[in-house]
């Protein structure tokens, strides 16, 4: 609550603080970019094969799956607000992808048509998303807890579908996604580019995106402006479920099988989505930030692999990234809204 006299005496410091914060966020953005460039340069000079075109395209193709999922997470962060404790988050997205992949691969292996299998995968993803939405919006459970619970439900379901086996799957569509090329780029790369373009429009150049930012920024204000806040928040979880289903199709196509380790993607997805917030002066995910961060994390993991560093370290680095981003953005945000 701002007080009568508060305005008089605090007006100048407030403005000064605003200016300081603006400069601070600019430094932060440039710093993050510099860090990206530095790490990339280091890998380029020390790791053989890192800058080879084959490797770069390999990473971009790997990143297509991650990119779709990072956008799913980013949208949940935008609509739920980026408050670390109470804001939007979807911890079930990776496990959901695993379940969708299992459904997709099982159906293809069982002889279902491409369309039916894809519809089932995406339908499964959205259903899980709606379960999250119900828990968060209707039951009012903190997203952190609600999606954690759903993550476990979904992981259990995946095990019952796959019996913890790798299920091979092959069809004309998976073949096309995995090996198809168009204008010199692979189909996966094209999917990543088109999906990014679509998301850039939805987030930054559509009414939905603007209203979603308002919902996440200050739900009360959004409601006062006549926006159905609950529907928007529910929509973000449904969308993140859709992303899980879509990513599952790409994943199965790339590996010609469903794998049992999809849940491990969560850390990378979270790191990419949160890192993406650093590139916005509002500390909210942006399309550009999400793309950049996803690519960075993809190249980071790839660099580690090529330098023969154990995969376990990659997890550690992603964890540290999450801690850093959350600490820095929490510190740089204006106090008390």
């Amino acid at each position: 609550m701002t007080m009568t006299i508060a305005a008089e005496t605090a007006a100048k410091p407030a403005r000064a603080r605003g200016a300081l914060r603006r400069q601070g966020t600019l430094v932060l953005r440039l710093g993050a970019l510099a860090m990206f460039a530095l790490i990339m340069a280091w890998f380029a000079f020390t790791t053989r094969g890192f800058v080879s075109p084959a490797n770069i395209f390999n990473v971009i193709e790997q990143t297509a799956v991650m990119g779709v999922l990072s956008f799913g997470m980013a949208v949940v962060l935008i609509g739920g607000g980026t408050d670390v404790q109470t804001g939007g988050i979807d911890l079930s997205i990776a496990a959901n992808t695993g379940l969708c992949a299992a459904v997709y691969a099982t159906l293809l292996a069982g002889g279902s048509g491409d369309l039916a299998a894809a519809a089932a995968a995406i339908g499964t993803g959205i259903a899980v998303g709606l379960l999250n939405a119900f828990a968060v919006v209707r039951l009012g459970i903190l997203p952190l807890l609600a999606t954690l619970a759903v993550m476990n439900i979904v992981a259990g379901l995946e095990l019952t579908v796959t019996e913890n086996q790798v299920i091979g799957a092959n069809s004309t569509v998976t073949q096309l996604i995995a090996t198809g090329r168009f204008l010199g780029l692979s189909v996966l790369a094209w999917i990543f580019i088109l999906f990014s373009a679509l998301m850039t429009w939805a987030i930054h150049y559509s009414r939905i995106g603007l209203r979603l930012y308002a919902v996440g920024g200050h739900p009360e204000a959004a409601r006062a402006a006549g926006i159905n806040v609950g529907a928007y928040v529910a929509g973000t979880y449904a969308f993140s479920g859709f992303c899980a289903g879509f990513a599952a199709i790409l994943l199965v196509a790339r590996l010609s099988a469903s794998t049992t380790a999809t849940g491990q993607l969560l850390l990378a997805i979270l790191a990419a989505a949160l890192l993406g917030t650093v590139f916005s002066r509002r500390f909210v995910p942006t399309a550009g930030g999400t793309i950049l961060s996803t690519l960075f994390i993809g190249f980071l993991a790839n660099g580690f692999q090529l330098s023969n560093v154990s995969y376990y370290w990659v997890n550690g680095v992603q964890g540290v990234l999450i801690l850093m981003v959350v600490a820095v953005t929490t510190f740089a945000k204006p106090q008390g809204k």
Binding site: R207, L210, Y213, A214, G217, H218, A221, A222, A225
Partner: peptide, 17 residues
Amino acid sequence: LLVPTATVAEAIFLRHE
């Protein structure tokens, strides 16, 4: 009741964009 992270233009035209 304004969204603190919105720009002035966004705050003015929110829902009447």
